[in-house]
């Protein structure tokens, strides 16, 4: 179960602006989905190790050797807003 307040909190964490209609729908949909997910609770998981990865590799390391970086115009090419030196954004301090 998840309530409207939690939906709004999570949406803020995820930087998603939801319309009131979306918040309503999400609250219902997520509750149904989470209800199913909670069937996990029926499994006995006492001292079972979590698996975050199926690969058994360890210590995959890269030699400390420089490779050419992108030319700046290439790096900035896809930016929605930039000046000749970098990516432009509203100042975090401003507004907010």
């Amino acid at each position: 179960m998840i309530d409207r307040e939690q939906v709004l909190y999570v949406a803020r964490l995820a930087r998603l602006r939801l319309t009131d209609e979306e918040v309503e729908r999400m609250t219902g949909e997520l509750s149904t989905i989470l209800e199913h997910i909670e069937t996990i609770g029926t499994v006995d998981l006492e001292d079972v190790e979590p698996t975050s990865h199926v690969v058994e590799l360890e210590n995959v390391l890269r030699p400390d050797e420089p490779r050419p970086s992108l030319p700046r115009d290439r790096a900035l090419e896809q930016a929605p807003d930039s000046d000749e030196t970098g990516f432009r954004v509203p100042s975090p301090s401003a507004g907010q």
């Binding site: 997910i37 996990i40 609770g41 499994v43 998981l45 079972v48 190790e49 979590p50 698996t51 975050s52 199926v54």
Partner: peptide, 14 residues
Amino acid sequence: AYYGSAQRVRTKIA
């Protein structure tokens, strides 16, 4: 409750 348990179920499935 969610991520931790899901990872443990993953172990069981494997």
